[in-house]
Each structure stands twice: as C-alpha cells, then as structure tokens.
Design a protein around this nucleic acid. Sequence first.
DNA 1: CATGCCAGAGAACGATCGTTCTCCCTTCGG
DNA 2: CCGAAGGGAGAACGATCGTTCTCTGGCATG
Lengths: 188, 188
Amino acid sequence: MLNAATAERRLLDTAQALFYAKGIQAVGMDEIREGSGVSLKRLYQLFPSKEELVEETLRRRSAAIQQAMNQYTESVDTPREQILAVFDYLKDWFNAPNFRGCAFINSFGELGGNSAGVAEIVRAHKKELAHTLSSLVTSMGQPSSLGDQLALLANGAMVTAAIVGTDQAAQDAKAAAISLLDNAAQAA
Amino acid sequence: MLNAATAERRLLDTAQALFYAKGIQAVGMDEIREGSGVSLKRLYQLFPSKEELVEETLRRRSAAIQQAMNQYTESVDTPREQILAVFDYLKDWFNAPNFRGCAFINSFGELGGNSAGVAEIVRAHKKELAHTLSSLVTSMGQPSSLGDQLALLANGAMVTAAIVGTDQAAQDAKAAAISLLDNAAQAA
DNA sequence: CATGCCAGAGAACGATCGTTCTCCCTTCGG
DNA sequence: CCGAAGGGAGAACGATCGTTCTCTGGCATG
C-alpha cells in the first residue's frame, strides 16, 4: 500500500502525462490506474471524478509553468531581458521531447465548450501569462497593451510550434517581440 | 429521399457546426443524423467512417476560410493594406456568434496526437495562412520571416479571443501587426 | 397489377467508458 | 489469537459510441 500523498502524486504525474500526450477524452481511468500503479478504489477516493482529476492536473501544471518561467525571468535583471527570457523559456520548452503544444489551449479546444471548470482554469492561466508580461512592460514605462501583444505572440508561438512542428516558431516569436519592444521604445 | 449532393451538403453543414461547437469526440454520429435529417445508412454510404467525415469538414472549412479571407484582402490594393485586412477579417470573425476559436487548432489539440490525417490537414491549413502573409510581405520587399511573425500574431489572436473571450485580442493583434510592419519598413 | 429494389427507421452489436461493487487478503489493536 | 478495518484486483454495471443489420414500405419497371 502506498502513502496517500505518494499515490496522489503518482496519479497526477501519470494523468498529466497521458492527458497531454493523447488528449483527455482519449485516456481512460483504467489507463491511469495501470500507469500509476494506484488502484481504482484509491483513485476515486482521492479524486471523486475524472473531471476533478483533469482540473487538478491543469492547476498543478499551471503552477509548475509559472515557477519554471520565473526561473528564466529571475536569471536576468532588466525588464527587457526578462521579457526576452520568457521567449527563451518557450524555445526550450518547444524543443523538449514529446512537446505537443500548450496543454491549456489543447484542453480548452477539447473541453472548453462542455466543461465550465476547465474553461475557467485555462482562462485564468492565460490571463496570468498576459499579466506577467504586462507587469514587465509597465515597469519599463510602456502601456500594458504591449504586454497583451507579447502574450499574443507567445500563444501563437505555442500553437505554431505544435502544429507546424519547428522551433522556427520560437525564433520568429522572439524576433517579433524584439521588434515590438524596439518600436515601442522608439515611440517614447 | 434526398438528392445525394444535397444529403452530402446537409451532412457536412451539420457535422461542421456540431464538431465546432462541442468538439469532435463529444458529437456522436446519431446526433449528426438527427441534425441533418439524413439516415445513418446514407451517411455511411457517403462517408465510410467518422474519421473521413471529420477530415472532409476540415478540408471544406479550410477552403471556405481561404475564400472569405480573399474577399477581405481583395477589397484593398496595397500589400500593407491587404495584410491589415487579414486582421480585420479576424476581428469580424471573433465577433461572429458562437465563435469558439479556430477549428483547426481545436481539432489538432483534441486529435492531433491520435489522427495523422487530421494533423496533416491542420498543418496544411496553417502553412497556407503563413504562406499568404509571407507572400504579401515579400511583395513589399520584406523578408518572409516577417510573414511568419504576422502568422504567429494571427494564431495567437485566435487562441486568445477564444479563451479570454474578448475582441481586444483582435485590436491587439492589429496594433502589433502595424508595429511589426512599421519597424520593418523603417529598418529598410 | 405484380415484382424487385432501394431507402428510411431504428434495433442490434461489440467495444469502451466512467464508476461502483464484490471478494479476498493483509494488518493491527485488544 | 481474534476480529474488524481497509485496501488491492478485477468483475460488474449502465451508458454511449461507431458501425452494421433487419424490417418495412414506397416506387419504378415489365
């Protein structure tokens, strides 16, 4: 028998990986049980429904992304460098093995119309990204709409990298970000 | 009994709307039969499997989008205006009723990992968009990578408009596009 | 009018899903 | 040593899916 905390971690790890790789509806609860080694009984004790398991994996992933991105932005000092560090983070992420786009965008496309809970978590995650970028640009004295524009670039890069399948998306995104920053700085 | 061409059109109309509204896996063949008024027997005569019906709706939608976008770009003369017309098209699209993001991005997120056919159609569609924009920027004497950057913006706007749910995404995208164009023109 | 054919309506089928239940074994307190 | 509690393995259940089959009725052709 496993420690409850260990079982929960294994379940979330397994479910997160499977949902991301194959889509949520394509993964059955029995596949999660098999992958995690946690019995169905315990699974339903910890997560009373698939919906709750899905939402918890998304919340956990959002926190992990936030933390990983912070490591990139905190490694440099100026707001401009921090913004560009976000795009460096994207580039490294795109080149990670098994990259298959943004789990939040994918989940929204699959379930956003049917699951209000998932839609809300995805919305919060994307607002957080826009807020992070907007905070950085306002600290440079630029309007927050520039942060929203950079967020558009970031999300577009995620989608393009997944679909067209090249890290050229990361290069283009960073180049476009620099262009937007330069154009804004010059107008000031 | 219905004309074969009429049955096919009704099936594709119904399936396309339902797939877009609820996701592909959430729509059953019986729901398509009910919505279209075409019997299951005829449905399977025209489309031997759900997969083929899905792919045909995507191909058809891709052609329709291409055509609709052309109407916007052909209404103005200069390449710069034509590029901005693409973003006007996006804005009008985002404000259409029942807008729920880009069907290709949504389908890829849901099935891209499991259906090679769908993945290929989505990839071709997104390459076409990037190619359209790249053609316009090269006719302005700009490098095609600028077109790829504009495509990132467009795809990011689609995702953001769907998730965060505002046409501010369209405004931001157009403003960013102008910024990219201005910055490139000035460097030349 | 008789006959053969095709389409529509919907039952049927096998698979799979999320979820629950049964049975058995281990473990631990008295 | 005994008994109760609880967890693991997996069967079971009801629903739903994609797909096929059956039956029936109308329609065209001789």
